[in-house]
């Protein structure tokens, strides 16, 4: 993996609301290596998106309180000024969002939208920027890029728009691409195309990727390492093979067992995880998974700390040896 490109330490994100403080992210730490694809898996409300978007200050500061430290290229992102952060966003770190229908500006030509960040961040001439934009469109697999460069977003399908979003993200050759459920709104055949594209880009231009998703299937075929999130915490962090072969946290294990498998039909009922995730306003003082866990003991009243069970595999549970 080599040295870490991005290091997040003890990140907390809290949202004060009239009903109380929503503890969306509660002390997560992770690192992202060069050329690595890191998947962050979790269900809705697990804090998987908030935990990443807050790094880039994409959640308005007046709505939330962010604590911790985020180390990227020798600077703490949380301490940057707003202009410094703008300089970084889109230039060094690019983002692709879930909804390709709303993330592009409908009244601007797609070519201009791709060029925009290059001109903004690198100050190159429009002519060079244009040829760069066409190059990028070709890279992400848009046919007849020279012609389609002049088209507007509504002239593209969902899958094509997601490719354009990726092209726009890549314009400044960022070192990290953050993808927040980029294929959730797409069909499986189109999803396969996008995943294939991201893998190709990693190979060819060597960027790192943080891929946020709820779909363990995508993770298996795409990621190098996986962080499983539950109720604002990373409960397990492991290389992809280890996670799928020997999941250590009861939640990760439950998730994997609850999935119906395409490649093996069984008459047995699925092993569902009963119950619901905890309320993030009245955050439990115990292990947050306690209520739904079948391995619970007295000890679980004290929330477990993240600990390493091998050099690469970390789990947040008191009872890993029992599993």
């Amino acid at each position: 993996m080599g040295e870490a490109l991005l290091e997040v330490e003890n990140l907390h994100v809290h949202f004060p609301t009239p009903d109380g403080v929503v503890q969306a992210v509660n002390g997560i730490s992770y690192s992202l290596g060069k050329k690595e694809i890191l998947a962050i898996v979790g269900e809705s409300g697990s804090g998987k998106s908030v935990g990443v978007l807050s790094l880039l200050r994409l959640i308005p500061a007046r709505d939330c309180k962010v604590q911790g430290s985020v180390n990227f290229e020798g600077q703490n992102l949380l301490k940057l000024s707003d202009p410094e952060m703008r300089e970084l966003r889109g230039n060094r770190i690019a983002m692709v969002f879930q909804d390709p229908m709303t993330s592009l500006n409908p009244v601007l030509r797609i070519g201009d939208q791709i060029q925009e960040s290059v001109i903004e961040h690198q100050g190159i001439s429009e002519k060079i920027a244009k040829s760069r934009a066409i190059e990028l469109l070709e890279l992400v697999g848009i046919p007849e890029a020279g012609k389609r460069y002049r088209h507007y977003p509504h002239q593209f399908s969902g899958g094509m728009r997601q490719r354009i979003m990726i092209a726009a993200g890549l314009a400044c050759e960022p070192s990290i691409l953050i993808a927040d459920e980029p294929t959730t709104a797409l069909d499986v055949t189109i999803q396969a195309q996008i995943i294939d594209l991201v893998k190709k880009l990693r190979r060819e231009i060597g960027m790192s990727v943080i891929w946020i998703t709820h779909d363990l299937g995508i993770v298996a075929g795409l990621a190098d390492r996986v962080a499983v999130m539950y109720a604002g915490k990373i409960v397990e962090f492991a290389p992809v093979d280890q996670l799928f072969k020997t999941p250590q946290h009861p939640y990760s294990r439950g998730l994997l067992n609850s999935l119906p498998r395409l490649d093996a039909r069984s008459e047995k009922p699925l092993e569902a995880i009963e119950g619901l995730p905890p309320n993030l306003i009245n955050y439990p003082a115990s292990c947050p998974f306690l209520e739904r866990c079948s391995y619970q003991t007295e000890q679980c009243q004290i929330p477990p700390e993240m600990r390493s069970i091998t050099t690469t595999h970390e789990v947040c549970c008191h009872h890993t040896e029992k599993l």
């Binding site: 075929g221 795409l222 799928f244 999935l259 490649d263």
Partner: peptide, 29 residues
């Protein structure tokens, strides 16, 4: 056939195996 090939299976080993001989569907509906 192509639909089945496009669906990711939650098993990294199998995925690597499948990737080698996966035919991706071009274009869109």
């Amino acid at each position: 056939q192509s639909l089945l090939a496009a669906i990711p299976i939650p098993d990294p080993e199998k995925e690597r195996e499948r990737e080698a001989n996966r035919v991706l569907l071009d274009g869109e509906v």
